[in-house]
């Protein structure tokens, strides 16, 4: 029961993760495999970020004024954050709840590294396509098999 009301985010993340894994396992097309891999990757990002969420929290951008030089920025920050809560908490500063910034940092870099590795994968796919003439996995295997047999026959 607690899964339905308190932990439903994990259930959805697992469903998405397994969908991505299924695409990686089942599909024979290399580009579709990479798309499945990126679905899997994104669901891992979701897992981390949902763990760092604090209910009633704000984005981890500090609202309080922290020095005279940045005082002019404060209206912008207040508007950017949840406006009602910010005004309510402006009197009692220490009471503002922020979501956990640590998962955000980890995932932020992971996203950019993810696209860089995706580009490597796609480059490999393009080279495979140019060499074999196909990007279907079973056809590539058959070509390899044939090539090996002919190599030993000569």
């Amino acid at each position: 029961m607690s899964i339905i009301f308190e932990q439903y985010n994990y259930a959805i993340v697992i469903i998405l993760m397994m969908t991505g894994l299924y695409v990686v396992f089942a599909s024979r097309n290399l580009i579709k495999k990479l798309v499945g891999l990126s679905i899997f990757q994104t669901s891992v990002f979701l897992l981390y970020i949902t763990i760092g969420k604090v209910s009633g929290g704000q984005p981890p951008i500090i609202v309080e004024s922290h020095g005279a030089d940045h005082a002019s920025l404060e209206p912008v920050l207040v508007a950017a954050a949840n406006a009602k809560d910010a005004v309510a908490h402006a009197a009692s500063k220490s009471d503002v709840l922020y979501s956990n910034p640590l998962p955000h940092v980890l995932i932020l870099t992971a996203i950019v590294v993810g696209v860089a590795t995706l580009a490597i994968g796609l480059a490999l796919v393009v080279r495979i396509r140019e060499t074999y003439g196909t990007i279907e996995e079973d056809e590539i295997e058959a070509l390899d098999y044939q090539y090996n047999l002919e190599g030993t026959a000569d």
């Binding site: 990479l34 990126s38 970020i49 949902t50 932020l108 796919v125």
Partner: peptide, 27 residues
């Protein structure tokens, strides 16, 4: 919605923008 504005920014720029273009180019 999960308060991760920086991550959302990156995901929108990278995931929906650049990686889609790269996948189209590879396709």
């Amino acid at each position: 919605s999960l308060d991760a504005v920086d991550v959302a920014f990156t995901e929108a720029a990278v995931g929906a923008g650049v990686s889609t273009v790269l996948m189209l180019a590879a396709m």
